[in-house]
Amino acid sequence: MIVAEQKPIKEILEMVKDYNKILVLGCKGCVTVCNVGGSKEAAILASTLKIAARKNGKKIEVEEHTLERQCDPEYIDEIKDMIDDYDAVVSIACGVGPQFLSERYPSARVFPGVDTKFMGGAVEHGIWSERCAGCGTCVVHHFGGLCPIARCSKSLLNGPCGGSSNGKCEISKDVDCIWDIIVRRMTELGRLEELLEFVPPKSWITARDGGPRRLIREELVL
């Protein structure tokens, strides 16, 4: 899923300080699963904004609403009759949400309420970790099913570098060296030889480096 984190409240308050009718818009997709942008969090943020207003002696109206998804025009359409009632929208979907909203409702003031972090999953309750950098050409099967592009700090395809120590990456003791894990796993699997083969430079054409990406599936196009 796409993992996001709520923006500091102060930052959100600063964004919406000139607006008095605010819609906090949640999303039932990834951000619900990572407990940051679902209906529950929309209610919390709305309440927080109201407490801030109370504290500052301001009168504001804040309402919350949660869409099935904010990355789908069909659902974005659902709020067409209500969006004009608000002078600001705080989307707590991933970065796609505020954009789909801005594109569909060009005159609306849309603000991002979360910081979109990465593609990953929950490794423990309350702890998420990155897994994929969306390089566009998946190669994890060469590395024991683990991705060195997203998970090695230097995206080395012929790792590990000389900074790996005690299973940790040179950048921080809190970051696992994925190459350490890859080597150990391949050794256990009796497939170490595969790692001895030189991996040539990767084509990043399919990654973000090749420009903004777009996917067309003719059979699905109406």
């Binding site: 995206s155 080395l156 570098c161 040179e170 950048i171």
Partner: peptide
């Protein structure tokens, strides 16, 4: 060389490149 990660240095905010790694640099 691959190079030390920029988080060590005096411009930790920098974007890194790592288009190729040290092994691929040798090959280049």
């Amino acid at each position: 060389l691959s190079g030390d990660h920029q988080r060590f240095g005096n411009h930790p905010e920098a974007k890194n490149v790592f288009d190729i790694d040290s092994m691929q640099l040798i090959y280049t």
